[in-house]
Design a protein around this nucleic acid. Structure first.
Lengths: 161, 161
DNA sequence: GATTGAGTTCGCTACTTGCCGAACTAGATG
DNA sequence: CATCTAGTTCGGCAAGTAGCGAACTCAATC
């Protein structure tokens, strides 16, 4: 299988993963996937367009979304109007942070649910509390893990700057 | 604030959380949320309908979806045609397992991406490998955590049967 | 055997999403 | 100042979703 074909298949597969994980549009996910696979030197608007096979307008909109979210960034070169798109340096950390926030919210809601049950259904709380607490612990551990990973990544990126 | 009002607010909040987390429809998520809050004795179709304020048909469809997915189940009583819906005993474990599968898939894709980069962009792999490996480790730890939690819950539920 | 009650099925509508093409803008370059 | 190139904006269309109401089924009861 050629690099191109292999890349195309990976973009589709990875794209769907990204779509589920970050809730981006299919096109935005494919662009993100492409830049994960080969953005070291940066790809131009036209290069992205040819590989992804979508209209100028859609590419434009979705590149802007990804830029806004800090998932991608671009460089320019003197005497060259094109922009060279690549993964944003801290993109992985950005998305981990978004995940961190989501977990915090889940913990908050779970706390409210537990409080509600404790107050209005104390009779069944023996049961619920324990399942609730196991889940609460799980969320807290996950939060730790995410934070630890983000820190590890930051350290790594700072080092090789 | 009355129990009712508080419950309604919690259903909305928790419902949205469930919707994002399990990708269920808004209505299915609200029903699930309701049963999380007060399903110990089981709620009838009509009770659910009055609290959630939706049409019979929509309630029917969404209850069936939740049942299919093993998130909820029901009991019947002799000489009573109604069904009494409640959380399925293992619902939390069911959803943790779904999550487990999703993480495994993510690990697989990440492996493919790393292999692709190693093969076609070895020059930049020093960098990529390290970020890739940090993320790989993170996913593996998360997988462990999910498994551990599911086991803990299973043990708990077996015990108090 | 007619009626009631619990739930299902079907057809429809309103809304949202994702993308496209065509027209446009703005900053170089001849 | 005209032109070319990189990218944006706008209007619209096609497909998918969520939910509704009305008609239906099927079992139990009178």
């Amino acid at each position: 299988m050629s690099e191109q074909t292999e890349q195309e298949l990976l973009i589709e597969e990875l794209g769907i993963g990204i779509q589920d994980l970050l809730s981006l549009s299919p096109l935005a996910s494919r662009i993100y996937a492409l830049l994960i696979l080969c953005s070291y030197e940066g790809l131009t608007f036209e290069e992205i367009r040819t590989i992804i096979k979508a209209s100028k307008s859609s590419i434009s909109v979705n590149i802007n979304v990804l830029t806004q979210l800090n998932y991608i960034s671009y460089q320019t070169k003197p005497g060259d109007r094109k922009r060279y798109f690549k993964l944003a340096r801290y993109s992985s950390i950005i998305s981990l942070n978004a995940y961190h926030t989501a977990i915090e919210k889940e913990i908050k809601i779970l706390g409210e649910v537990n409080a509600f049950n404790k107050r209005y259904h104390p009779e069944k709380f023996n049961n619920e509390e324990s399942l609730g607490i196991i889940y609460q612990d799980y969320l807290k551990e996950k939060l730790q893990l995410v934070k630890k990973t983000a820190d590890k990544m930051t350290r790594f990126l700072e080092n090789e700057k």
